[in-house]
Amino acid sequence: MTLNLNPHSSPPLPSWQRVCSLADILPGLGVCALVDGRQIAVFHVAGQVYAVSNRDPFTGADVISRGLTGSYRDREAKERPKVASPLLKHAFDLETGQSLDHADMTLPTYPARVQEGEVWIGLVD
């Protein structure tokens, strides 16, 4: 089981929804899940799953799930996962949703986990 709780998400406990099998996401790629009317981009990167909003805040288009994933080194030279929007290539930290181009831009993030080969997304509100 892989579990990565988003540190920015806060109680109350999320309600979890299964969105797909892990096998539905090729390693390194993302898919878009429709959860309670919301478009959520779900990525499978280096053995982990990450869930962020599918909407690119720079362009307003729902395209993040089609972005290329990868990694960058943060200030402590730690390798962290990222995704780049396919439209204007703005990049975001996959864990925190923080824009790597503008300090005041973020992608909403969601808790995601894998249980028995199924991907679950947590919604808190």
Binding site: L26, P27, G28, L29, T59, A61, D62, V63, R66, G67, L68, T69, P86, L87
Partner: peptide
């Protein structure tokens, strides 16, 4: 191919040109 697909920019990934609204 599965080993190449994650490398492709969205245009190559969907064999079409992405426009401003996705």
């Amino acid at each position: 191919k599965p080993q190449h697909a994650p490398l492709q920019d969205t245009n190559d990934a969907f064999l079409a040109n992405i426009q401003k609204n996705g």
